[in-house]
């Protein structure tokens, strides 16, 4: 069953579709765990459990926005990053991130942590872009599609896909601000 059809049936209350959908959402706690590990473990297991439920709440409330262009897992993945970052921001994540960096033994680990934070910021920012732009960036960069493939999946020409993509990149740059990426330099 195609992912879009699956989400439509879930919204229609089809029990077997709901069960399939839930099995696909097993990745939520796994992604949160991995992301948390890569960030040096700022969240406790119980906080990660709460975050899993929060990710699900967000996904459920936005299920109608899913248009099926990106794989369901890619879409869910962005919600995981977005929710984790929101939570860390709420805990004054920047200063906490600074503390982790000081505790890390060598520059290699510091760079790794910086890259993990950059990824989190990037994926959260992509999730918050308007749907049309978020989709084109996800397909091009997160799923590794060519412009021809992006155009085919969005039913637009490759040139329109390219224009939309660069517009999205410009917006993303503005959203992230000029200091983005300095932690991983």
């Amino acid at each position: 069953m195609l992912d879009l059809e699956l989400t439509r049936r879930v919204r229609g209350g089809d029990r077997s579709a709901v069960e399939t959908f839930l099995q696909r959402l097993r990745i939520i706690p796994r992604v949160l765990n991995r992301r948390n590990d890569r960030l040096g473990g700022p969240c406790t297991p119980s906080e990660l459990d709460d975050l899993s439920q929060e990710v699900f709440t967000r996904i459920w409330s936005r299920l109608g926005d899913y248009r099926g262009e990106a794989a369901l897992e890619t879409w869910v993945y962005r919600f995981c990053c977005w929710t984790l970052l929101d939570y860390l921001r709420g805990r004054k994540s920047e200063s906490v991130a600074g503390e982790w960096i000081e505790e890390l033994p060598d520059r290699g680990s510091e760079r790794e942590l910086g890259a993990a934070l950059d990824d989190l910021h990037l994926l959260a920012a992509v999730a918050e872009l308007p749907a049309e732009e978020s989709e084109v960036i996800s397909l091009k960069q997160l799923e590794g599609c060519s412009f021809e493939e992006v155009g085919r999946r969005l039913s637009i020409s490759p040139n329109t896909a390219k224009t939309r993509y660069y517009r999205a990149i410009e917006r993303l740059r503005r959203v992230l601000g000029p200091s983005f990426g300095e932690s991983s330099q």
Binding site: L142, L172, L176
Partner: peptide, 28 residues
């Protein structure tokens, strides 16, 4: 800066794909 952002996105995308394929194979 835009080229740099694209490079970061591409690297992030690669890590994301790798991570997703790993978590999908993980045992429950």
């Amino acid at each position: 800066p835009l080229r740099e952002l694209e490079e970061k996105l591409a690297a992030c995308g690669e890590r994301t794909r790798e991570e997703l394929s790993e978590v999908e194979l993980q045992r429950g």
